[in-house]
Write a protein that binds this DNA or RNA. Structure first.
Lengths: 115, 115
DNA sequence: TGACATATATCGGTTTCCGATATATAATCA
DNA sequence: TGATTATATATCGGAAACCGATATATGTCA
């Protein structure tokens, strides 16, 4: 594909990083928020999210810290690093390019234009 | 994900099937046309396309026939079956849903709305 | 002769994502 | 009290997508 293959379908990484743009969040919270913000379209699974977060941490695109909640297990919060924020911008641009290209193929049949 | 996982990133299957909507095509031709219709964004590789086509054939979403060209190796043309055309419509709808959901997440930060 | 474009094909590998499973805490309910 | 459910994190194994490399075969052009 050559345009950032990791977008296809690394879209989950993009979306998770986007959630962190609004402020630090912990894993379980991201699952809920992604569901909400996508109008119940994305049901991100724990088995997908946690390895993904660990991977972002390794690449230093996010940092993590633990904090006890009023009840339950302590929560592991994630924060976008500067490099993470820069990577996010790139990923958003790549997504736009990709989505637009799909749109071109889906709309532009031989039926409608010689262009 | 629950919305047709094979869209993420089965987008290639969607795009290839879409190309066939305009008429029968052979593999190499699809690679060239996808490049053209996407304004040089998608560089579909032979190693991706041919297994994908064989898979569509197995599922009876396309049929194939061979035809000699004026020169060179004979070409293997593919044609959308009725089931294939129906599957294409579904895949296009799924793509729309998916792309819109990504759009919602990318646009709707906590920064801009309580909605 | 060799390089290149056309054309199809397969194998092995990486990355994505998920299902299943495990662990731990607290609330609710029968 | 015991069972279930929700919260919260984690890992493992597997399926599927896509690609790089490679192989094959034909024809043209220098």
């Amino acid at each position: 594909m050559e345009l950032d293959k990791s977008l296809l379908s690394g879209s989950m990484t993009l979306l998770v990083m986007k959630l962190l743009e609004d402020g630090d969040k912990y894993g379980y919270q991201m699952i809920e928020e992604l569901k909400r913000r996508s109008d119940d379209t994305f049901h991100l699974k724990a088995g997908t999210l946690y390895p993904l977060l660990h991977n972002l941490e390794e690449k230093e695109l996010v940092t993590a810290y633990e904090r006890k909640a009023a009840a339950g297990k302590p929560r592991r919060y994630y924060r976008l690093t500067k490099r993470g924020a820069a990577a996010l911008v790139e990923k958003e641009t790549a997504w736009d390019t990709y989505a637009q290209a799909v749109g071109k193929v889906l709309k532009g049949g031989a039926c409608c234009a010689g262009a």
